Computed example of a mutant assay.
Amino acid sequence: MHIDLSGKTALVTGSIAGIGFAIAKGLAASGAEVVLNGRAQDRVDAALIRLQQAVPAARLHGIAGDVAQIDGGNAVVRALPEVDILVNNAGIFEPKDFFEIGDEDWDRFFEINVMSGVRMSRAYLQGMLKRNWGRIIFISSESALNIPTEMIHYGMTKTAQLAISRGLAKLTRGTGVTVNAVLPGPTLSEGVETFVKDLARQNRQSEQEAASSFVKQHRPGSLLQRFAAVDEVANMVVYVASPQASATNGAALRVEGGIIDTIA
């Protein structure tokens, strides 16, 4: 299968590092004109340089703006009025005891993880419907279905993304637009790599041993038995963004290594 996204413009929110950056790289390598997004202009500029080095022929742009804030999201939309592919990737997580999670934490997680995608989708979906082609992809998590007791507020937001993506998909009935959610599991992004290095040092293990031990202990249901690579998640997103995925709509697509123990 050859995925060609030439002529398509893609916006990936929260894409200066981690899964978002890997998604941007995959879309750029497939020919899309890619717009990186982050909160700070200097970090966006640095990510653009790294991505241009990784995909020399890529057509790239960067827009600084905090999509978790109304003003920041509006600034992004003013700078980029139309997109063909929207990847709602911006998000945060934080392990925290339920009894220590205050109202301000619940509000913050909802604004960043849920409302950022709502606002961006509201801004771009109508244009996609008018042009009769478009892709909206929410980066959810296996935590949407397997709510982690150590960060219930995070799991709540990831479940909400599934509800929103499914509801939006129903608005695309009979068109060339699709809306889907992708559910990564434990993934070796930059932040997780630092965590694994610290764990390896503490336990006098290799990084590979530390990562494997962590997954076996904390995600024992994993069939993959390791962290996924960011590119493995990005590969699913690139496919869902492609014309070849035209019959995939309203779906929750797992890239979680088999942690969720269900066949449905």
Rank of each mutant, 00 (worst) to 15 (best):
S116R: 02
A123R: 02
A68M: 01
V44Q: 01
V44L: 05
N89P: 06
A123K: 00
L48W: 06
V67Q: 04
A75D: 06
A90Q: 11
I112L: 14
V87N: 02
L60G: 05
E111H: 05
F93G: 08
D45T: 13
V87L: 07
G91Y: 10
V44M: 02
D97W: 09
A47N: 05
H61W: 11
P81E: 01
S121M: 04
W106T: 10
G62H: 03
R39E: 06
N37F: 01
E94V: 11
R119W: 10
L80K: 08
G72Y: 05
I85P: 09
A90V: 15
I112E: 11
S121D: 07
N37L: 03
H61T: 13
G72I: 02
D84Q: 02
D84H: 12
G65Y: 04
V44S: 01
V114R: 02
I101Q: 15
G72M: 07
D97I: 09
N88F: 07
D105A: 12
E111T: 04
A90L: 12
I63Q: 00
E111A: 15
A79L: 07
F109L: 10
F110G: 04
L86Y: 03
A64W: 00
Q41W: 04
K96C: 13
L125W: 00
N88M: 11
S121H: 02
G91F: 06
H61R: 15
L60T: 07
V77S: 03
S116F: 06
A58D: 12
L51I: 05
R39G: 04
G73I: 02
G62A: 09
I85G: 03
P95S: 10
V67S: 00
R39I: 08
Y124H: 06
F109W: 04
E94Q: 15
Y124S: 03
W106S: 09
V55D: 04
F99S: 12
L86S: 03
W106E: 10
G117K: 04
G38S: 05
D66M: 05
S116K: 06
V114W: 01
F98D: 10
D103M: 11
G102L: 11
F98L: 15
F109P: 07
E82H: 12
W106F: 14
A58Y: 07
N89L: 09
Q126F: 10
I63D: 00
Q53V: 12
V118C: 05
P95V: 08
G127E: 00
A90S: 14
A47G: 11
P56G: 01
I85W: 03
R43K: 15
A40M: 11
Q53S: 13
I112M: 14
E100P: 08
D103K: 10
A79P: 03
F99M: 13
Q69W: 01
E104I: 12
D97G: 08
R108A: 13
E100I: 06
A58L: 07
D45F: 05
D66N: 13
R119G: 09
I70V: 15
R78Q: 14
A90G: 11
G62C: 07
L51T: 00
N74R: 14
L51D: 02
N89K: 08
V118H: 10
I92N: 09
E104A: 15
A46I: 03
A47H: 06
